[in-house]
Amino acid sequence: MMTGVPLSWYLILSVVLFSLGVAGFLFRRNIITIFMSIELMLNAVNLSFVSFSYELKSVNGHLYTLFVMVVAAAEAAVGLAIILTVFKNRGTLNVDELNSLKN
C-alpha cells in the first residue's frame, strides 16, 4: 500500500479511534463531549472506508465517506439545536442531571 504502510495498520488505528469514541460516549458526562465522541466514531469508520477503498481499488468506499460526512453534518445541525433547547430549559449540560423521566 501507500509507501509501504500495510492495510492492517490503518484498520488498527481505526479500531483504536472507534474504541476511544465509544469510551468517550460511555464515560464522559458533558453532552458536547459525548457528541464529539460520536463524531470521532464516524471518522474512525471513514478511515476504514478509505483504506479498504484504496486496497480494493474500488471507488465505492470514497463515495461512502462523502455520504457519511454529509450525514454527520446534518446530524450535527439537528443535534446542536436539540442540545441548545435542553440548555435553555434546564441550564445544564450534564447528562446525569437529565433524569426527570421515570416511573
Binding site: 453532552i31 460520536i38 474512525a44 469508520v45 472506508f49 480494493l56 457519511v68 433547547t85 423521566l101
Partner: peptide, 26 residues
C-alpha cells in the same frame, strides 16, 4: 427536550456501529 436528546445521542451512537459494520462488510 430530554426525550429528543436521549433519542438523538443513542440513535447516532447506534448509527456509528451500523456504519462500522457496513465498512467491514465492504
Amino acid at each position: 427536550n430530554e426525550s429528543a436528546l436521549k433519542y438523538f445521542l443513542l440513535g447516532s451512537f447506534a448509527s456509528a456501529f451500523l456504519l462500522y459494520g457496513i465498512a467491514l462488510v465492504y
